[in-house]
Every structure is written in structure tokens, then in C-alpha cells.
Design a protein around this nucleic acid. Sequence first.
DNA 1: CCAACAAGGAATAAATTATTCAATACTGAG
DNA 2: CTCAGTATTGAATAATTTATTCCTTGTTGG
Lengths: 281, 281
Amino acid sequence: MVCLLKIRGMLQQMSVIERKLADFILDNAHLLRDYSSQQLADAVGTSQSSVVKFCQKLGYKGYPDLKLAVNEAVITASTLNRENSEQSQAQNDLVGLVEQFQFSLHSHLRGILEINPEKTLLDVVDGLAQADKVLIAGFGKSGIVAHDMQFRLLQLGKLAIMHSDPAMALQLASTLNSGSIMLLVSESGQNTDLLKLARYAKQRQIRLISLTSYKTNALSMAADIALFALSGDENVRINPILVQLAQQHLCHILYLLLCQQQNNDHQLEAISKLLNVLEQP
Amino acid sequence: MVCLLKIRGMLQQMSVIERKLADFILDNAHLLRDYSSQQLADAVGTSQSSVVKFCQKLGYKGYPDLKLAVNEAVITASTLNRENSEQSQAQNDLVGLVEQFQFSLHSHLRGILEINPEKTLLDVVDGLAQADKVLIAGFGKSGIVAHDMQFRLLQLGKLAIMHSDPAMALQLASTLNSGSIMLLVSESGQNTDLLKLARYAKQRQIRLISLTSYKTNALSMAADIALFALSGDENVRINPILVQLAQQHLCHILYLLLCQQQNNDHQLEAISKLLNVLEQP
DNA sequence: CCAACAAGGAATAAATTATTCAATACTGAG
DNA sequence: CTCAGTATTGAATAATTTATTCCTTGTTGG
């Protein structure tokens, strides 16, 4: 950062060749990374020794030193730009696509803490921690989220049950009792099978947590605690992925909070033992 | 940023000397700026040539290349920290945890494009686009990724088959033919059942794509195209999640690329009709 | 136990960078 | 206008840094 300013500041009191060098560097700071002093000399049309002298005149030890400084400037500049200007449009298709995606994702994830009050999250964590069993359900895309969450809870030694077949899920629900808890995941919050499960939970007085898109829907209304993931990207392809990832992300946050709550020593041991078993052929 | 993650991710499979080098670099990333390869060698207690080989093994052109990358990492890290620490430090536990998690996630996702050359991604997309069937397999955590990818491909109208039971997966594999392709997902890249599938694919001359952590492993070696997700967060809880999410993210990128490649009009219609059906009670 | 192979370091080659020095151009005083 | 003094530049070269080669050693798998 400072480096380029320094060069710019000395432009006036420079000789012709020095000035050419300075201009080139200012215009192509990002290219310098892959230039040797000789290449830079050629690009500007001067000698390699002049390049080195130029560097020393500016107060740097030598060419690599200047190069490093310029690189630093480029990076801080681009980092700040990414933070501020949000997206770099210029790049090619693939990179652009990915960056746009990652940016949207980032926003969606950051939004999670805003639409789910801290207290809600802690309540859910408490509920999960105290439950003797957790029934997780979700079908289709939400099945992936449900599956993921089941895996996390099992990793914590918490009995989590789920089945991707709705009928089986209902059967599993019959094994719950008043100390159990149900976590229903749905993008729309309108899935019939999930609503059946919700109704069943009400009848049996089983605590119900919902995880849906952020809009009023039957499932979240029925739930004791409602968790939400942002929706609403305009891209038809990307939006469902973002919602799903936001849901997963929320689950992961819950998982991490649960980890904190537990006494870790005991659990870490169990994990490492399990890993040992898993890693053996 | 990515550079240090990359190094961390490969820590396990490093020899003693390499490991010493890696540790030193990770601990003293900010010092590297002023070290020559010889100085680094002396500091670690090894030979200059080993330093260079270490750099090349990590995929860099040579020592200056690694040095530059490390420098970049140091700078972006410190820049981002400055941006973030103002807010996140003050707040309470929950917010801090989440922000730390999101920050790590962000880094890992950004790294994907760096460790998977663009050409590789496009090759995979081509392969998937041309395949008549795709067999996806992954067990445990990777099963979630596999499941997710299956869902995406089906959404595109691409026949994707998978089963969470290894024996069933093998049975499914027998339905493949030379126009098919296999996508095997594994964190370690050492899962026995997946390796069986890989061997079977080799015999039947079925193209094989692997998706594993970024380190040499049996699966990626056997694959025609190897995709990688960064690993190596020091937090035992968070690291598996990051790897899984990175894998999913990579799948999502492939999905989006496939979307672009297809003629969208036709497909969008199919999707919307399917959505209509799904949304009806 | 041996062959095959990988890892590491010493030696050396290649490259990059820094310095020296001579040529040229410019400046200002006489 | 001229000439000494000075600054600028680049060619040549020295010095340093980096990359490669090759050989030793140790390890693994048969």
C-alpha cells in the first residue's frame, strides 16, 4: 500500500528511465509478482542494473525487496476491495461464477445470526442436550440436511434417529417419549409428511423444533421453537443450494454449541477411539 | 491464506524434515519474508536443497514462489483480522464462535479454486455431461456429500445412482457400462469399500473421478481425475465439517457449471413442472 | 535377505541479483 | 563557449540465491 504511494510521490524528481519504471510498476503492479529484474528491465526497455538501482534509490534493499513490497500493496488493496466493492466482475466465467456463488453464500450464512435470536439457538441447544432421543426428519433436499444433523448428533453420543422413508419416520416417531425431541427440516415448511409428524408430536406432547425457510409456514407455526434459514436469491439454480447450505450451517452451529456445552475430555476420547477404528483397513 | 491451509493439510503425510519445515513456516510465517532458502534451511537444521524440494512438493515452482504465497497469506490474514477483530472480539461467546467458524469456512471455500485447476473442473463437467449414468458413492460423512451430489445431478435430468450400503453400491456398479462414470467421495481416500469400487471401475474401464482431502491417497491416485477439498483446521470439531462443506461446495460448483453448459430453457421447464408437483399437497 | 524405492544432503549448475566501471550526457562556473 | 564536475546509464562481472543432479542411506515389501 505504502509502497505504491511512495513511488507515486517521487515521480516528479525522477529521471526519464526511472519514471518509465515507476509508471510501469504503477500500471502493472499485479504483474510484478512473476517478473525478474531482467524481465522488468526488458519490459520497460532498460537495463537490469538500472532496475536494481531504482529499487535502492527508493530505499529498498534490492529488487526482491521492492517486489515483495509491491506485492503486499497489491494484496492489501485487493483484499480491501473485495470487502468493500463486494464482487469482482471482471474475471472470466468460471472464476466469476464461483465468486458470485461464494459471495451469496457468505451473505446468507452471515444472515443466520440475524434472523435467529441468540436465545432461540441456546434454547434449541438446551433442548437437544436434555433430550434422551432426537428424531430428525426431512425429505428431498432437506433429507441431506437431516442426515447431516443426525451424523453430528451421533458424533456427540446423542441418540439421533431418522429415516428417509416418511412411513418409516412415522414408525420411528412412535418410539419417542415425553423426554424426546423432534427436529423437522423443510425448505417450504409445507411438506405433508412432515406436517403429519408435527401433528403426531403435538398429540404426544413431544417438543418440536422446525427448520424452514424464513417465511411463515405451517411447520414453523406448529413448532415450539422455529429456526430459519434465509431464502430469496433470484437465481433459480443457486437459491435452493443456498437455502440448503444455510440450513446445514445452522445445524453445524448448533453442533458446535453442543460441543462447547459438553465436557469435552470424555467425548474427545470417544471420538479419537472411533477414528482409530475407522482408519484401520 | 490458502497456502498455509494447504501446508497444514499435508502435515500428516510429511516426512520428519518436511514436517519440521512446515512447522517452522506455520509458526513463523511472518518471518519468512526475510529468509533465503539457505537461511530457512539453517533455521530448521536441514539442507538448502531439501527446502527447495519441499516447495516443489507442495506444488510451488520453487522457493521464491512459496515465499510469495506465504507472504500473501500473512498479509490477507492480518488485513482480514483487522477488519473482523474490531467487531467480533468484543462480543460474547456465541457470536465469536460463529464468526470464527464462518471465517474458516470462507477460507476453505476460497481455496477450492486454487487447489483444483480450472481445467480439471471443466474436464469433470465434460465427463459428467457426456456420461449416460453416474454412479456416486461415499460412506459416512461423505455419504452426505454423495447424496447431495446425487440430488443435484437428478435435478439436471442426469441419471445419478447411489446407495448408502456398500454392497448395494457394488451391485449398482455392475449396471454401468463404458459410457458411464463413477464419482467416489471420501475424506481420507482410503475407505476399503470405495477402493473396491475403484478397482472395479479400472477393470471395467469406467472413468473414475475422486473427491478427497488434499493429500495423496489411494483413491485419488487410482482416479482418472482427482478433485480435492482442503483439510487441516486444527480444531477437531470444526475440521471434519469444513472438509465436508468444502466437498459439497465443490459439487455445487460442478452443478452450476453443468447448468451453464446445458440448454437451460428446456431444463427450467422440467424443473418448474416438477416443483409444481412437489408443492401440491 | 535382497531389490526397489524414497528421502536427504553435498556438490554443482543455473538463475537471479548486485556491483563495478566505463561511456555518455548534462550542469554550472569561468 | 568550454571544460571540469557530476549524475545517469548500461555492459560486464561478481556475488548471491535458487534449482538440479547425483550419491548415500534407510526403509518397505517381496
